[in-house]
Amino acid sequence: MNPIIQTDKLSKWYGNVLGLSDVSLKIEAGITGLLGPNGAGKSTFMKLMTGQLKPNIGEVLIQGERVRNNYTLFSRIGYCPEYDVFYDELTGWQFITGMLKLYHFSSPYVEKKARKALEIVELMQDKDRVIRSYSRGMRQRLKFAQAIAHEPEILLLDEPLNGLDPLGRRKLIQLIKTYRDEGKLIIVSSHVLPEIEVLTNKIVLIHQGKIFAQGDIHYIRDLIENHPHMISIICSNRRKLALKFIKEEYVLKVEFGKVKNRVTIETNDRDKFFSSLPSVLRENDIEVEEITSPDDNLQAVFDYIIGK
């Protein structure tokens, strides 16, 4: 598959402050999650990809074309900025149609596309209200509407789920997945790991302006193989189970939590642990109610990598 977005040694400084350093990426169609804490460089990356910022080193190519000052490219890109800003004197309808007119669509098309975008984000009923009176969630949906209204092939969404209620969040996630199914390229940035987790496995971890890791969550897991893993087990005899494992070299810590019958074992070799677990349970006649891995999620991966 050919990469649609390609960055080569992309670096950006704000005076002496590092914004982004040596970022080389090839991004293909589908959803890519750009993950990192606040100030990690996600928005700088987004702004470089939309040509709003000029890289100090390197460049961004979208479909083989340079981005900065290449205005023709923007008919193919939809960008949802992180800022909660609008022309507040306008109504939702005026804002969307105003933005669409800048794409040189004819008036009937502008209206058709605006209607479609507002229907998608469920703002048709409130289209004639001034934006100033919109709630935070409505503003967020309107921002998303302006990004999709011209039906772009590439969607760059900077913290799109911010300020949405759980229902709105779920709807937007579903919507983003629909665009993925249509073969579009979508980059979603967020500092909230579960948000990205439900959207995609393909992630780019960014911290202090640098790419810490990229790939799917399992690949990132492999990268941190040596890091201890937690396995939590609720069973009929937790002390007996703990006793059997405590003598193993690959077990680093055993902990009894407040939850009745739960034991949490920390290991630096998960494969070895799971291969010996069935026989230990069988030989000691221990019944298992639940096995979970509390740190087997993106948050844990992220915490390990940034060295928390």
């Binding site: 023709t72 923007f74 609008f86 933005m99 800048l102 794409y103």
Partner: peptide, 15 residues
Amino acid sequence: EGKNLTYLVTRPIPK
């Protein structure tokens, strides 16, 4: 100041 510039410079129109 209003940060609305971001909407304008990401449209297919010359600056």
